[in-house]
């Protein structure tokens, strides 16, 4: 699971959960999959990204160095190459192989195994 995907997941489908976001990520094993930087993709996808959440999760796994600060609005055109590369790395290269996601409201844990997060729950857990 890429951190990009983490940014789009929530546990709002659970009973009695109002936002279920962001899910708390813990990592036991990660992988870095090198890929070419696609500036066009970064530009487009950044519009959809909750950057504060991305920054926090990157920081929690020690990947915040060179990442643009979450305090200012991010203008991709003004980022230097290092920052762009870092953003790219954090969004699409870092791959969580083993770990867990936790619902911020209920504490329900969703395991990540072989890179696949499991957010399938029992029928009596959904609203």
């Amino acid at each position: 699971m890429k951190l990009l995907t983490h940014n789009f997941l929530s546990s709002r489908f659970l009973k009695n959960v109002t936002t279920g976001y962001p899910l708390k990520l813990t990592i036991e094993e990660k992988n870095v999959v090198e890929a070419e930087v696609d500036v066009n993709f970064l530009k487009n996808i950044m519009v959809k990204i909750d950057y504060a959440v991305l920054y926090d999760v990157a920081k929690s796994i020690g990947e915040d160095e060179n990442l643009p600060s979450p305090d200012a609005t991010i203008d991709l055109d003004s980022l230097n190459k290092e920052q762009l590369n870092k953003l790219h790395r954090v969004l699409v290269c870092v791959d969580v192989v083993v770990g867990a996601l936790e619902c911020p409201e209920t504490g329900r844990v969703f395991p990540i195994r072989d890179g696949i997060p499991n957010l399938l729950v029992n029928e009596d857990e959904v609203s």
């Binding site: 789009f8 489908f13 936002t19 959904v126």
Partner: peptide, 13 residues
């Protein structure tokens, strides 16, 4: 992502 239909993405996407 393993989940029912689009449940895990529905709110954010």
């Amino acid at each position: 992502v393993r989940c029912d239909l689009a449940s895990a993405f529905l709110s954010r996407l």
